[in-house]
Amino acid sequence: MTAPAAAPPRSYRVIARVPEAPDTATIVLEPVRSALPPFAPGQFAMVYAFGVGDIPLSVSGIDGDRLTHTVRNVGAISAALHGLEAGATVGVRGPFGTGWELPSAAGRDLLVVAGGIGLAPLRPLVRAALAAPPEYGRPNVLIGSRTPRDLLYVPETRAWGRSARVLVTVDRPDDRWNGEVGVVTTLLDRADFDPTTAAAFICGPEPMIRATAAELVHRGTDPDRIAVSLERTMHCAIGHCGHCQLGPLLLCRDGPVVTWTAARALLLVREL
């Protein structure tokens, strides 16, 4: 056997915590001793809250050895991680899974579509794409959110507007919201891209992914060039526990990023 043995978590310290939304915070982690191998945009880590357990969290930022994760408080483990302050330690395993295939999009218009917390795994992709603009066509970032208060990374997404078309919409505006209201798919009408050649990257709740990908295919986008990031339960993250199966896929290994070609039929089968 040449494969390495599954490794236990490494110690990482929380060096910053940024509240993003009422139930969502971003934590920046730095290795206490040795760092894990480098993460790519779209990949995830298993982040362990001491004594509580670990959950898969996509990297929402990569800066040398530092890992950034955006955590939404939806359960016991995510609540523990969401509540960590700077100075706390966590355990981290990774990197796991497939990442966004940005190089394959060279020369094409980019369409990044995010729903809710789905913007987190897409942020490092947008950063990488905007850092190398001549390599890509027109960049578009379409963001859907529940309310204006739930919008993530607001100063940064505004700054992206200098070099990309950034369109934001909310489901439920408040009295101060002057932006768009409606589902994220309606933003496709205002995006600046050639659907027949563009490369699309989608992350959000599954119905949002289905609706967005179906609309793009209808407009002529090749399903092989639509990448989506999917979510299922994960315990081991190394293909040994069986929890993250989606039909033929083990999402910790074959995902979370898969092409729409691979995902479409699977997402149409109820309770697969």
Binding site: V74, G75, G115, G116, I117, G144, D171, V183, G204, P205
Partner: peptide, 20 residues
């Protein structure tokens, strides 16, 4: 109809689902 689903709502708020 898609918005009626309130897809980005915190889990469990109106679906009764449990969370981990």
């Amino acid at each position: 109809r898609a918005r009626l689903l309130d897809l980005y709502a915190p889990p469990g708020t109106d679906t009764g689902g449990t969370a981990g």
